[in-house]
Amino acid sequence: MYATPVSNLIDELSKMPGIGPKSAQRLAFYLLKASQEDAQKLAEAIVHLKETVKFCPVCYNVTDEPECEFCADTHRDDTIICVVEEANDIVSMEKTGEYRGRYHVLGGAISPIDGIGPDDLRIKELLKRLEGDEVAEIIVATNPNIEGEATGMYLAKLIKPLGVTVTRLASGLPIGGDLEYADEVTLGSALKGRREI
């Protein structure tokens, strides 16, 4: 139907998440109309991304340096490690401006139903980081869903005997929300985690 270069591009674009054949077609024709310079920039950005970005050997965040910015920063607290599921969760944690410790990216969460176990995650690598006496606390910042909770419980079982404190992010009411709409599990956990003011 289309000239080969156009249909090749449509095929490649439609492999991306959330892009169906129709959207791929629209993007391909947009690129066809775009200036040579813009198209070149996009192509170079993709190639550059694949060539330079890799996993940080310490925390497995994505980085284009030998170590990611959070591992290389000497002003951060070495005694706390915040464990997250994916690299983009680090960005969410950083936006809070409340955390100055180190990170560790697991690359997913334990999900028995999907057959994803501890061996599929970077848990051995995390244990290796605990070998010195430096780390005093692990903050489990996995998602507050069943897989995230399972991962948290598994990590606690594994790490607590090593004498390291394992904490979990509190779950409760979102700021700006209405109590009336809170479900009983969330509200119950907010009640359990209440604090003195």
Binding site: I113, I146, Y181, D183, V185, T186
Partner: peptide, 8 residues
């Protein structure tokens, strides 16, 4: 609005 209501 669903919160934890639809968790496995």
């Amino acid at each position: 609005k669903f919160g934890s209501r639809l968790e496995p």
